[in-house]
Structure formats: structure tokens, C-alpha cells
Simulated assay, not measured.
Amino acid sequence: MSDKPSVLFVCVHNAGRSQMAAGFLNHFAADAIEVLSAGSAPAESVNSAAVEAMAELGIDISDQTPKILTADAVQNSDVVITMGCGDTCPVFPGTSYRDWVLDDPAGAGIDAVRPIRDKIKAHVQALVDELTAQPV
């Protein structure tokens, strides 16, 4: 078990929102926070508009692949961020759960994905600040 906090981002297809969130968290705090992402019904590939939107900010998620959500991944994470997976996400005692309400970028073009990306970026920045804050 790692001594750094772990965050699991979950959305249905693990192709858009959760991949962008993981990309931002890796970019902002990879050395300080373990980053995982998964989906309850993973797609075959990451959403190309999400890849393009992240590339605009210099973050490459093109090498990522959607992964299936497992009970172990949830149980071994300190914080689980859900993004529209509803009741399909397993819940375990002792794990912190948060639901980020974000539009699903599936099938959307780059112009529709940018505002979703920007909301995710703001959420992730706040999460990094919270998880890396030093006690006073």
C-alpha cells in the first residue's frame, strides 16, 4: 500500500470525463497522488474529442485505454470520484465518495468538450489542493 493518497475516477465508458480527470491529476500531482480511472462499461477507446481537448492544454492522454471498474480498485482507493455512473459503482465503507456532475462528452465535438474539460480541470485543481494540503 502506498503512503500517498489514491484517487479513482469513474465514469460509465472510461473514455472521456474520467480520462480527462486522470490526465489532469497526473499532470498536476503525479508524484504526490496515485491516479486511477475506470468505467462500469468501458468503451473500446478514449474519446478522440477528449484527447484533442487535453492536447490543446499540453496533456497527452492518447496512450490511455478504457479499463473495467473492479471492486479492488474501489476498495483500494482513498477517494472515488464518480461522474454519471449511478448505481453501477460499488461502494465500500471507509472510502470517500464524491460525485462530479458533468455532461457526458460521448459523441460531442471539440467545441462541446472544451467546457467539460475546463470544469474537470477546476475540480481536479481543488482536489489536488485538498489532498496535498499540509496540516497546520
Rank of each mutant, 00 (worst) to 15 (best):
M1I: 13
S2E: 13
K4E: 05
S6W: 05
S6P: 01
V7N: 02
L8I: 07
C11Y: 02
A15M: 04
G16T: 02
G16R: 00
R17S: 00
S18R: 01
M20W: 05
M20S: 03
A21N: 06
A22W: 03
A22F: 05
G23A: 06
F24D: 00
L25Q: 05
N26A: 10
H27N: 12
F28I: 09
A29C: 11
A32K: 15
V35D: 00
L36W: 13
S37A: 07
A38L: 07
G39T: 06
S40R: 09
A43Y: 03
A43F: 03
E44I: 07
E44C: 08
S45I: 06
S45G: 09
S48A: 10
A49S: 10
A50E: 00
A50L: 03
V51Y: 01
V51N: 00
E52F: 03
A55S: 11
L57C: 10
L57G: 05
G58P: 04
I59R: 04
S62I: 06
S62K: 04
S62P: 03
D63I: 09
Q64L: 15
T65D: 08
T65V: 10
T65K: 14
P66K: 01
K67E: 12
I68E: 11
A71N: 13
A71L: 12
A73K: 14
A73W: 13
Q75W: 13
Q75S: 14
N76Q: 15
N76L: 15
D78S: 14
V79D: 01
I81L: 07
I81Y: 02
I81E: 02
M83D: 04
M83E: 05
M83V: 14
G84L: 05
C85K: 01
G86T: 10
D87V: 12
T88L: 08
P90L: 07
V91K: 15
V91G: 10
V91S: 13
F92P: 06
P93Y: 09
P93M: 14
P93K: 14
G94L: 14
T95G: 04
T95D: 04
R98S: 12
D103G: 07
D104E: 08
P105V: 03
A106P: 04
G107H: 08
G107R: 07
A108L: 15
A108N: 11
A108D: 13
G109F: 06
G109H: 10
G109W: 06
I110L: 15
A112V: 10
V113P: 02
R114P: 03
P115W: 13
P115R: 07
P115H: 11
I116E: 01
I116M: 03
R117N: 03
R117Q: 04
D118I: 12
K119H: 10
K119N: 08
K119W: 07
A122Y: 07
V124S: 02
V124F: 02
Q125G: 05
Q125L: 12
E130N: 08
E130C: 08
L131T: 04
L131H: 04
T132K: 07
A133F: 05
A133K: 12
V136L: 13
V136S: 09
